[in-house]
Simulated scan of single mutants.
Amino acid sequence: MCYSVKVLFHELGVNPVVHEIDQHPEGRDIERALRTLGCQTPVPAVFIGGSLVGSTNEVMSLHLNGSLVPLLRPYRAF
Rank of each mutant, 00 (worst) to 15 (best):
Y3N: 11
S4C: 03
V5S: 06
K6D: 08
V7Y: 05
V7N: 05
V7R: 09
L8K: 05
F9H: 09
F9E: 10
F9M: 12
H10D: 02
H10E: 04
H10M: 01
E11A: 10
E11P: 07
E11C: 09
E11N: 13
L12A: 08
G13L: 14
V14A: 02
V14F: 07
N15V: 12
N15T: 12
N15Q: 12
P16V: 04
V17G: 11
V18H: 04
V18D: 10
V18E: 15
H19G: 01
E20Y: 14
E20Q: 13
I21P: 12
D22R: 06
D22P: 00
D22N: 04
D22C: 01
D22Y: 00
Q23G: 11
Q23D: 15
H24M: 05
H24S: 02
H24R: 06
H24N: 06
P25C: 10
P25L: 11
P25F: 11
P25A: 12
P25Q: 10
P25R: 12
E26K: 09
G27T: 15
R28H: 15
D29Y: 09
D29Q: 10
I30V: 14
E31P: 00
E31F: 00
R32I: 05
R32V: 04
R32T: 06
L34K: 07
L34P: 03
R35F: 00
T36P: 00
L37Y: 13
L37E: 15
L37D: 13
C39Y: 01
Q40F: 10
T41V: 08
P42G: 09
V43T: 11
V43C: 01
P44V: 07
P44S: 08
A45F: 07
A45T: 14
V46D: 11
V46R: 08
F47P: 14
F47T: 11
F47N: 13
I48R: 00
I48M: 01
G49P: 14
G50Q: 11
G50S: 10
S51Q: 13
L52K: 14
L52C: 14
V53I: 13
V53Y: 06
S55W: 10
S55K: 03
T56N: 07
T56M: 12
N57T: 11
E58D: 13
V59M: 09
V59T: 12
M60H: 05
M60A: 09
S61G: 12
L62H: 03
L62A: 04
H63N: 15
H63V: 15
N65C: 03
N65G: 00
G66S: 02
G66N: 05
G66K: 04
G66M: 03
L68E: 02
L68T: 04
V69D: 06
V69Q: 08
P70A: 10
P70K: 06
P70T: 10
P70Y: 05
P70M: 06
L71A: 08
L72N: 02
L72K: 06
P74F: 01
P74T: 04
A77P: 00
A77Q: 02
A77I: 01
F78E: 15
F78H: 15
F78R: 15
F78I: 14
